[in-house]
Amino acid sequence: MAKLPVRLTPGSSSDRIEGWGVDADGRRLLKVRVRARPVEGAANAALVDLLARELSLPKSDVTLTRGGQSRLKMIVIANLDEAALAARIENLRLGD
């Protein structure tokens, strides 16, 4: 199981993973944008869908565990360790 901190920006012009950034405390997080608005969990669902698709995982392996109503979220990825998750993210064409 791998943990993935994410900063989500809803209401974007496209769904995309932008790349790595840092939060106010200097911790590394993945910056993600989705078209969905933060209404009735639509942006969170879009985030899970996007991560599952881009990381070639079943949606059931991607779970939002913290930050349901915040831009800063914690995603848990089942069946991958931290190194395997990092490798998959590094193989993505980020920001395109």
Rank of each mutant, 00 (worst) to 15 (best):
P58A: 03
M1H: 08
S70M: 07
D23T: 12
L64C: 11
L29D: 06
P10L: 08
E18I: 07
V76R: 06
G21V: 05
L4S: 09
V39C: 12
R53G: 01
G19T: 09
E90Y: 12
K31S: 12
R66I: 12
S13P: 14
P5I: 06
R7I: 08
L8D: 10
G68K: 10
A2N: 04
E40W: 01
V48S: 02
L55A: 08
G41A: 11
M74V: 15
S60W: 03
A46N: 04
V76I: 03
D15N: 04
L30E: 13
A84Q: 14
G41R: 01
R37M: 08
L4M: 08
R88Y: 14
D15Y: 01
G95T: 04
N44Y: 09
L80N: 06
A43S: 13
R28A: 14
T9G: 13
R35E: 00
D96L: 11
V62A: 01
P58H: 05
V76C: 03
D49H: 00
N44D: 09
L72G: 13
P10K: 10
M1A: 06
T65S: 08
D96K: 15
S14W: 04
I17C: 10
A84L: 15
L29A: 10
L72S: 10
A46M: 03
A86T: 14
G11Y: 12
R35A: 02
A87K: 14
A86E: 15
K31Q: 10
E18G: 07
D96W: 13
D49Y: 01
I17H: 09
E82L: 08
M74E: 12
P58L: 05
N44W: 05
A36H: 03
R7C: 02
V32S: 01
A43V: 11
E54I: 02
